[in-house]
Design a binder for these strands. Sequence first.
DNA 1: CTGAAAGCGCTTACAG
DNA 2: CTGAAAGCGCTTACAG
Lengths: 343, 343
Amino acid sequence: MSTQDGRAQAPKRATITDVARVAGVSRGAVSKVIRDAYGVSPAMRARVEEAIERLAYRPRTAARALRGSGFTIGLALPVFGNDFFSQIVLGVNETLAGTGYRFILAPDTSESSSSHTLDALADREVDGIIAVSPMVSTDWLENLARYVPVVVIGRHDMPAGYDTVNGDDAAGARLVMNHLLEQGHRRIVHLTGDYVQVAARPADPHSIRSVVFREMMLSAGLVPRQVTTAADPAAIVACVRDLLAGDEPPTAIFAAHDFLAIHALRVVATSEPRVAIAGYDGVDIASHPMISLTTVDQRGVEIGRTAATLLLERIKGRTTPARHVSTPELLIRRSTAPDGATG
Amino acid sequence: MSTQDGRAQAPKRATITDVARVAGVSRGAVSKVIRDAYGVSPAMRARVEEAIERLAYRPRTAARALRGSGFTIGLALPVFGNDFFSQIVLGVNETLAGTGYRFILAPDTSESSSSHTLDALADREVDGIIAVSPMVSTDWLENLARYVPVVVIGRHDMPAGYDTVNGDDAAGARLVMNHLLEQGHRRIVHLTGDYVQVAARPADPHSIRSVVFREMMLSAGLVPRQVTTAADPAAIVACVRDLLAGDEPPTAIFAAHDFLAIHALRVVATSEPRVAIAGYDGVDIASHPMISLTTVDQRGVEIGRTAATLLLERIKGRTTPARHVSTPELLIRRSTAPDGATG
DNA sequence: CTGAAAGCGCTTACAG
DNA sequence: CTGAAAGCGCTTACAG
């Protein structure tokens, strides 16, 4: 006996009504037991719990979220598979453990921009949203924050309605530049993503790194030179290859983030003369002895933990904005070691 | 005028009722316009769309899912931040583009096992679930599949109610072993995760790789030796260090997956004599010239694409089980090159 | 301590 | 082509 829709006769999961019937109580009573709410007699609780067990009942988050809270927070990521963002996710997960809150991840996809991703999360009635480097205006975020608690990672905004968590990008960039200058480098190039627009997005971490690079080169009496590349490995490799093949190739590259640095190393690994490279983020693979990339540890796990903590505060009712900045640390490795120390 | 709950006076997003009121039509009519359903006059559509625009209305997925479909599929991952799984996510994303379906990710967390993750997804009333290497019984999966369309990646099950997508692990393991044996290696050790239990989980990809390793060693007249390690980098490094420091250290290591192989390389990078290493998965970093790890490309993106395609079929009504196996390819790199070719 | 009723925001038949 | 009503599975006051 089949119908047109193959799922037509799919069995229904037990609902709160089924449990109420089996336990011989009202639906409201079952709800109270589930939520561990005040005012349930031990006897009733026992009966309800037995019925829940027997029916393998599980409350539907979708329905709960509609009325009360679904105990879920949404984590929006601009890309999937970036190791630094993975650190953030780890931190969020750590903080949420034991709180009863779960999280779901929603990466921006090829066809959905940051705004779509954030909207989609809000549409699912999550209790709060952590947005990592969202590419939307502050106005857009302020508006979103009117309806749902929001914490933003990776934007040095001065928001009224949401919280921010960032690394100290100016300090981190200074650490890198001081290191390279101390090594005696004069021809240093800043390698960054082609989406970085310092003028349009001054609060963007990559803009700040770029600005600091420029300032420090100038005050050292040097010429700041910056090249931009698309995000895919092939483009990065091509960009760095061109750079090294051009006139006056740099002796050092300050890459705006580790992904750029690691792919730049693909070129540098076989190039002569050697070019120093420093990255930014502190991803795990940078510490691998065969890579050994100098980088700035942004403490992604800590950033994730802090963001989750702030979001839980907001969910509980805080409305005053909080801004957290974590202190970066320079990890000096072989990629910027003086000539000859190459592994 | 503030209340105890800071969110008490948070503004409400416009609902379908608001739109109906503004447009002067019924809620059902608005619903039809939203869903692009049959039977709406152009005039009415125009009025409704104007109201939607004006109110910045967005249908709540949570409410839709309760009644019809939320056009969302859930992707359950056993861990977060694994590069091979990222390939799968990319493939799923590719296939979903343009279908109107979105996906949300739910990784197993420290406190939630695979079953909790899958339940949580089902509780959110997703239209279907793709489960990557879930650590639950087949009975459990069959039961889940009674209620929601399911596709499982990374288990060579013979299911009745769900689909499976896998690499050909036996073929892949043979590629690796043939390669190592051809290089003249006799003392080959298989390095695998300590959770792998061949007897208990014969359908697990890692079990299959382990079994094939054993068979091929035996038929080559060699002694199969396997060591297991916990999943964290420190444990892997300690394990490999012990292995190399022990009696009769191997001349080659067949790691059950790239993450193991790459961290094993941390030890091997500085060890004498040289030990060949092959991994399994085909993660991006393996191709980096400074890593250059021999591995089996599992074609993760293709696996993700196929899984999404099968799930969409199931959502549309297919009930007969499908099983897809993708053909792996051996990528020979420097990590298994003969002595002296070390980079 | 317990239950009946209303409502969250949507969709689905069913009348008109 | 359009609307009124019932219902998805839950929670929230409000009576008793």
